[in-house]
């Protein structure tokens, strides 16, 4: 097991380096001069040249990469042309909001997809299964930003009981920044008003993000469960008089969760990157929205930082998922024949 973990971590490092090279090359070959864009069309040529030198844009690409990557390792992604601040400061400000959103959304879709999947499998081919199936197809087909707009319309206009913009109401003082996750920080400082207010603000955007993965995973869990119910080893276990609860727990749930966990991990990791439309709609000050703004303004350092960070998060989440799957499935843990 330990060998397996270290192997996965080792691979992960290589993937991060690979991503950094790729994103660096892509960000440098797109047309447009970042220095010119930063200074505007009217800036004199000598000022542009000076900025180019300052940003090492006059050096060959491999040298530029080395400058850049040595900074990245120290946590320095350079300055953002857009916000005129170090990119790392922006990331520190915006990333926690997205992480908070993704965590909450992940919790929602994991929790409810398991419940719906179990219900649909337990009452398969009845009306319960039918309703969940119809809901699922709708939920999978409708994109998150449409759900977001509908939710906003419902709860911002028709029935305004839940706040629809930002992370906190303006009349509530934000808790001191410890982790950057407002819910965690407010709990840590015992500020329950802020905690509940932050939760309310989280509800709609995370729900909008959760809808797609939620129903998709409910479907996968249902089919995986019904699939395993028909397995010979279930009828063998029944034939030995093994009690229903043991069959459920041991013989059915554990093997059925293996495919679901993998998809959950992928969905969770892609939440971060896919959040930008939802973040935009709910005015959520997250890294996804920041990344899109950086792209529109050709803010190279910011783009690279956002993508490297997303890549690293993706890899970490995937390693965690692989470890969970390996702990569930001995065929992966021990290497199958």
């Amino acid at each position: 097991m330990l060998l397996y973990i270290s192997k996965r971590l080792f691979q992960g490092v290589f993937v991060v380096v690979g991503i950094s090279i790729l994103i660096f090359i892509i960000s440098r070959v797109v047309p447009g001069d970042p220095a010119r864009m930063a200074l505007g069309p009217r800036a004199p040529q000598y000022a542009v040249d000076e900025l180019r030198r300052e940003m090492h844009l006059d050096k060959p690409l491999p040298v530029q990469y080395c400058y850049w990557f040595s900074g990245v390792i120290r946590g320095d992604f350079g300055k953002s042309i857009n916000t005129k601040r170090p990119v790392m400061a922006d990331v520190k400000e915006f990333l926690p909001a997205t992480i908070e959103l993704a965590l909450f959304s992940g919790f929602l879709f994991i929790f409810f997809s398991i419940i719906l999947g179990l219900l649909a499998a337990r009452y398969r081919d009845t009306w319960v299964d039918g309703i969940i199936r119809a809901l699922s197809y709708t939920g999978i087909a409708v994109p998150a930003f449409v759900v977001a707009v509908i939710l906003m319309l419902l709860f911002g206009y028709v029935w305004p009981i839940i706040p629809v913009l930002g992370r906190l109401s303006s009349d509530i003082t934000a808790p001191p920044v410890i982790t950057g996750l407002i819910t965690v920080d407010s709990l840590a400082t015992g500020n329950f008003t802020a905690f509940f207010d932050a939760l309310k603000h989280l509800l709609l955007p995370s729900l909008a993000l959760a809808v797609g993965p939620l129903f998709q995973e409910a479907r996968i869990l249902r089919s995986s469960l019904t699939d395993n119910m028909g397995k010979e080893y279930i009828s063998v276990a029944t034939g030995y008089g093994i009690s229903g609860s043991v069959i459920m727990r041991k013989y059915l749930l554990k093997p059925s969760f293996i495919p679901v966990v993998s998809v959950m991990g992928l969905d969770f990791a892609s939440l971060m990157g896919n959040a930008f439309l939802v973040e935009r709609i709910f005015n959520w000050p997250g890294i996804s929205r920041y990344g899109i703004n950086a792209m529109l303004n050709k803010d190279l350092n910011a783009i690279s930082a956002v993508i490297v960070i997303f890549g690293a998060i993706f890899i970490v989440v995937n390693i965690i998922v692989d470890l969970i799957v390996a702990s569930l499935d001995p065929r992966i843990r021990l290497g199958g024949k």
Binding site: Y233, V236, A237, G239, Y240, S243, P255, D329, P330, R331
Partner: peptide
């Protein structure tokens, strides 16, 4: 009653040994 029969009296060997064993437990 049927559980008693399954637990104490009759046992059955399935024709597919690979399918008859749960893959995730020893």
């Amino acid at each position: 009653e049927i559980q008693q029969v399954r637990r104490r009296s009759i046992s059955m060997i399935s024709q597919e040994p690979s399918a008859a064993l749960n893959p995730v437990f020893t």
